[in-house]
C-alpha cells in the first residue's frame, strides 16, 4: 500500500534508478553484509514462506493431476490448463468476473468520488457522513450478506415490497439468471464505496487552496470549471490508485457469492475465486484448482504492475 501517497504538488526529487545506484556503491565490509542480512532477513523469510513458496507450490501443483488428500500424483504438463480453457464453467466464471469487475470498478470509483466531493463541499456533519459511508467497508461481509439476503428475499424482502409499493417490477433477485450478477455487483459497490471515498477525501484534502484561489482569479469559478481545472487533475494519482485497488478487490469477490448464491442459478454468478475454491476444496481437484489459481494470479499481478507503472509515470506532475 505504499502508493497511497498524496499527489505531490511541489516538485520533489525523484529517486534515481535503484539498481544502478546499488551497483555504483563500493564493496561492502563483512559487518555491513551481516547487518543487512539480519535486518532484511526476517522480512525475506516471511515473504518466502508466505508468498513466494506458495506461488511456486501452486505452479508445481498446477502441472500435476493431484487430488487433494491423495498420496500420489503424476506430472501431466499443461493438461490442466487445456482443460480449464475447455471447461464451460471456468469460462463462464471468467466472463462473469469480467462483467462483475466492469460494473463494480467504475461504480465504486465514481460513487466514491461523488460522495467525497459532496462531503468535502459541505460543512456540517462531515464526520457522520464519512462514518456511515465507511461502515460497510469495515463490517464483516459475511454478516452483511445475510442482511442483503433478507432485503432481497422474493416475498418478504424490503426491496421487493418497496418496488411493489411504487409500482416497479419485482424479481427473485438472487435466483434469476439475469439479475443475480448485477445485484452482486451492487453489493460489491456498496461494500467498497467507503474505501474509495476515504482515499478520495484524503486526496481532496491535499489539494492546495491556492490552486482554487488561482482558478477563481482566472475565471474558473463555476463548480464544473473548478472540477475540470483543479480537482480532477489533482486527484489523478489517487484516482489511478483507487481504480486498480478496487479492481483487485472486485476480482477477489468471494463471500457474497459463497453465502448468497453458491454461484447459481446455473453458473450465472460463478466468480473466479469461488470456482477456484469449489474445484480445490469441494471437488478436491487440487491440480485443476491450482491451474485456475495461476490464471487468477496472472490477472492480479498484471493489474498490480499496471498500477505501479501508471502511478510512477503517468499521473505524477513532476
Amino acid at each position: 500500500m505504499s502508493a497511497v501517497n498524496a499527489p505531490s504538488y511541489d516538485a520533489s526529487s525523484r529517486q534515481p534508478d535503484g539498481i544502478r545506484q546499488v551497483r555504483a556503491l563500493p564493496r561492502r565490509r563483512p559487518g555491513e553484509v551481516f547487518a543487512a542480512v539480519a535486518l532484511a532477513g526476517p522480512a525475506m523469510a516471511l515473504l518466502l514462506v508466505l508468498f513466494i513458496l506458495p506461488v511456486v507450490a501452486i505452479v508445481a501443483v498446477a502441472v500435476t493431476d493431484w487430488q487433494f488428500g491423495t498420496r500420489s500424483l503424476n506430472f501431466i504438463g499443461l493438461a490442466n490448463f487445456r482443460a480449464i480453457f475447455a471447461d464451460d464453467i471456468f469460462l463462464a466464471s471468467l466472463r462473469n468476473t469480467a462483467i462483475y469487475v466492469s460494473i463494480v470498478m467504475p461504480g465504486t470509483v465514481l460513487g466514491g468520488l461523488a460522495i467525497a466531493l459532496l462531503i468535502e463541499s459541505g460543512d456540517s456533519l462531515r464526520g457522520f457522513y464519512r462514518a456511515i459511508h465507511f461502515l460497510p467497508f469495515m463490517a464483516t461481509l459475511a454478516a452483511m450478506a445475510t442482511v442483503w439476503e433478507a432485503l432481497l428475499h422474493p416475498t418478504i424482502g424490503l426491496v421487493n415490497n418497496t418496488f411493489a409499493a411504487v409500482g416497479l417490477p419485482t424479481a427473485n433477485w438472487l435466483r434469476d439468471e439475469t439479475t443475480v450478477l448485477p445485484v452482486l455487483a451492487v453489493i460489491g459497490i456498496w461494500q467498497n464505496l467507503g474505501f474509495a471515498m476515504v482515499l478520495f477525501l484524503a486526496g481532496l484534502k491535499s489539494i492546495p487552496q491556492d490552486l482554487y484561489d488561482a482558478a477563481d482569479i482566472d475565471g474558473a469559478d463555476q463548480w464544473l470549471d473548478r472540477l475540470i481545472t483543479v480537482t480532477l487533475p489533482m486527484l489523478g494519482p489517487i484516482a489511478m490508485f483507487v481504480v486498480v485497488v478496487v479492481a483487485l478487490r472486485a476480482f477477489e469477490a468471494f463471500d457474497t457469492v459463497q453465502i448468497l448464491t453458491q454461484g447459481g442459478p446455473g453458473h450465472a454468478s460463478e466468480l473466479l475465486l469461488h470456482t477456484l475454491y469449489r474445484e480445490s476444496f469441494e471437488f478436491l481437484r487440487a491440480g485443476y484448482g491450482a491451474a485456475i489459481t495461476v490464471v487468477f494470479l496472472v490477472i492480479a499481478i498484471t493489474l498490480t504492475l499496471i498500477q505501479a507503472r501508471l502511478i510512477d509515470k503517468r499521473v505524477h506532475y513532476q
Partner: peptide, 21 residues
C-alpha cells in the same frame, strides 16, 4: 462581485500554477 468580475490579477506566494498543465 466574484474575483473574475473585478478585473484583478493575482500572483501567489506559492505561484499556484496548475501542475498538470
Amino acid at each position: 462581485l466574484r474575483p473574475k468580475q473585478r478585473d484583478v490579477a493575482m500572483v501567489f506566494q506559492s505561484y499556484a500554477l496548475y501542475p498538470h498543465m
